[in-house]
């Protein structure tokens, strides 16, 4: 069964003068990682909020069309129940930290506490996620004293610990150094391998190319394209929506423009390495000086 289905969905915030989502129809299948890309204010976070039920249960406004989550109409869901079955990592880590817990360990455990998980399992799950994210040095610190990047990791950890089958992650690495970003994506990859369904909003297109199964491209509140990452990331629609191509894809386009096309257009560095190597081997004399 499809996990989420949206049919002709529109949403206008109570304070907004134009729709944040406009005639969106979309199907999310379970077990896949969907990347969502588009300009700021193109509707990415609003889409996440609808799927997560924060709209219309918390953010008010006018919702039109039909939203079904696990086959059940969004309006029939109890918000509390929905929040247990869908994990949600907020875009701004500064808003997610609860402010009521004295240590990072307790902060990460907070969601589990609310779910009524027993103490032993709670400690076990928090310890595991702390190890996966390399947060050992932080667990005794006060969450309010953390740096932006540290907060972002803690916010991410607290959702991962809840172990929902369906997780929505809105820009998890915006404050993180490159190493930590890769660690977060490594965890996302593991979640995927364990069969979780994931919707991920992320500007780092090179990482998206590496990890996403399918990509949703948004522009001005509409979904302008949805399809396999390989097709979307080399499409004209992507750049028309103001989203950059992966770096190696751009390189392939530049090579083609210079009359030196590769056999196909890569989206990841590993693919680019093979394709460029092949090209170099075809013209061995040209590179013999190197």
């Amino acid at each position: 069964m499809e996990l989420v289905s949206l049919r002709n969905v529109g949403f206008t915030y109570a304070y907004g003068d134009k729709p944040a989502l406009n005639d969106v129809s979309l199907t999310i299948e379970p077990g896949l990682l969907y990347g969502v890309v588009g300009l700021n204010a193109s509707g990415k976070s609003t889409l996440c909020s609808v799927v997560r039920g924060i709209i219309p249960h918390f953010h008010h406004g006018e919702l039109t069309g039909e939203v079904k989550i696990k086959g059940r109409d969004l309006l029939e869901w109890d918000p509390a129940e929905l929040s247990k079955s869908i994990g949600y990592v907020f875009q701004n880590p500064f808003t997610q930290i609860s402010g009521v817990k004295d240590t990072v360990f307790e902060e990460i455990a907070l969601g589990l506490e609310n779910l009524g998980v027993d103490r032993e399992e709670m400690i076990d799950r928090v310890t595991t996620v702390v190890r996966e994210l390399g947060l050992e040095a932080l667990i005794r610190k006060n969450p309010n004293e953390l740096s932006g990047g540290q907060r972002q990791k803690v916010a991410f950890a607290s959702i991962i610990a809840m172990d929902a089958d369906f997780i929505i992650i809105d820009e998890p690495t915006s404050q993180l150094d490159p190493d930590a970003s890769e660690a977060v994506f490594g965890i996302i990859r593991k979640l995927k391998e364990r069969g979780k369904s994931i919707i991920l909003v992320e500007h780092k297109i090179d990482l998206m190319a590496e990890y996403a199964d399918r990509i949703i491209v948004m522009k001005a509140g509409r979904v302008v394209m949805e399809g396999p990452a390989r097709e979307v990331l080399v499409s004209d629609e992507l750049s028309q929506a103001g989203v950059p191509y992966p770096e190696v894809t751009e390189l392939a386009f530049a090579l083609a423009n210079a009359g030196k096309p590769l056999r196909s257009v890569p989206i990841t560095r590993a693919e680019a390495r093979e394709l460029v190597s092949a090209r170099i081997k075809e013209a061995p004399h040209a590179h013999s000086a190197l």
Binding site: E247, E250, L251, A254, A258, K260, R269, R273, V276
Partner: peptide, 26 residues
């Protein structure tokens, strides 16, 4: 990504920009 690719392919250890790497691939 692109400078890293240039390095892995042994094309250059210093090229940082796309155009520089394009020029290195014949």
């Amino acid at each position: 990504e692109v400078p890293q690719l240039a390095r892995e392919l042994g094309l250059s250890t210093t090229a940082l920009h796309l155009n520089a790497v394009v020029a290195l691939i014949r």
